[in-house]
């Protein structure tokens, strides 16, 4: 399927700082000695690594290794769990996301999230896409219409749903729903996309579409993806981080980690001997 490559000549009145288009910041996100706890249970221990701008970074590792928890730390969604706490720091463009000055709502607009199970609201397709804009206080119909079209094109969904914009989103197929969730997130023009196993509930064709989409998305967004699927990590990501029991075992270019793993555990995992 061909993706209607979106061009973005117009920037809507969004409360976003314009991205630098040319240079890539190698230390766009810095994770510094970050540990995370649910009550007394430590889920992540002393992680330190940097994530480059506008690349796809995959988090892999066996179930329960904490990769989803880490992903949910970037938009502080873990805070919804009672009794959770963390030490260390995560910085985006040098600014700590745990800083008292930072508004968690603006953080979540900068770091949009797509979940394992697609979760469109039980509203129309249109209402789903504009949700983030409406809660941000954007009301102008013309602006909303334009962003809906742009976002749906950006999520490679426009051609399929343009005639059904006012139908309930739950009438879409599973893959379409997941792409709708992506459209909903990119509508607010985030800098970072957090993808939490976005294809685990989809069939191979829908998965293929999403993966193609990720290639497009990384031109504009910094993409972090959690996946259980080694091939998927190899196909879509530029860098891969392997986690085991809350620790970062290996973090290198994807090619290197799959072809030439340094750590025996990484090798065992990527070759499918455990996990």
């Amino acid at each position: 399927m061909s993706i209607d490559a979106p061009d973005f000549p117009i920037r809507a009145e969004l409360p976003e700082t314009p991205k630098k288009v040319e240079e890539q910041d190698e230390r766009f996100i810095e994770v510094k000695d970050y540990s995370f706890f649910y009550g007394k249970k430590q889920v992540l221990s002393n992680l330190s690594f940097d994530i480059p701008e506008r690349q796809v970074t995959a988090f892999i590792g066996p179930s329960g290794c904490g990769k989803s928890t880490l992903l949910r730390s970037f938009n502080r969604l873990n805070e919804l769990v009672e009794n959770s706490w963390q030490t260390g720091d995560i910085r985006i463009q040098g600014e700590s996301i745990f800083s008292k000055n930072l508004d968690v709502i603006s953080l979540r607009r900068r770091a949009g999230m797509i979940f394992q199970k697609s979760n469109p609201f039980p509203k129309t397709v249109y209402e789903n896409v504009v949700y983030g804009l409406k809660v941000a206080g954007i009301r102008k119909k013309a602006v909303l219409d334009e962003i809906v079209e742009r976002s749906l094109k950006g999520a490679a969904l426009w051609d399929e749903v343009k005639d059904y914009l006012h139908e309930n989103a739950h009438s879409l197929s599973g893959g379409q729903q997941q792409r709708l969730c992506i459209a909903r997130v990119i509508a607010t023009e985030p800098q970072i996309l957090l993808l939490d196993e976005p294809c685990s509930a989809l069939d191979p064709i829908a998965t293929g579409k999403i993966e193609e989409l990720i290639h497009e998305l990384k031109k504009r967004f910094t993409v972090l993806i959690v996946t259980h699927n080694m091939q998927q990590a190899a196909r879509v990501s530029d860098r891969t981080a392997f986690f085991y029991e809350g620790k970062l075992v290996e973090y290198r270019n994807t090619e290197d980690i799959f072809l030439n793993p340094m750590n025996p555990r990484t090798e065992a995992y990527v070759s499918g001997r455990f996990g």
Binding site: L77, L80, R108, R109, G112, M113, K117, F121, Y131, G132
Partner: peptide, 19 residues
């Protein structure tokens, strides 16, 4: 999932409640 989706879209608690 809906609750999380709403928060992840930058909605406040009250907005999530109402919408």
């Amino acid at each position: 999932g809906l609750r999380e989706a709403s928060y992840a879209c930058g909605a406040s608690k009250w907005q999530t409640t109402v919408r």
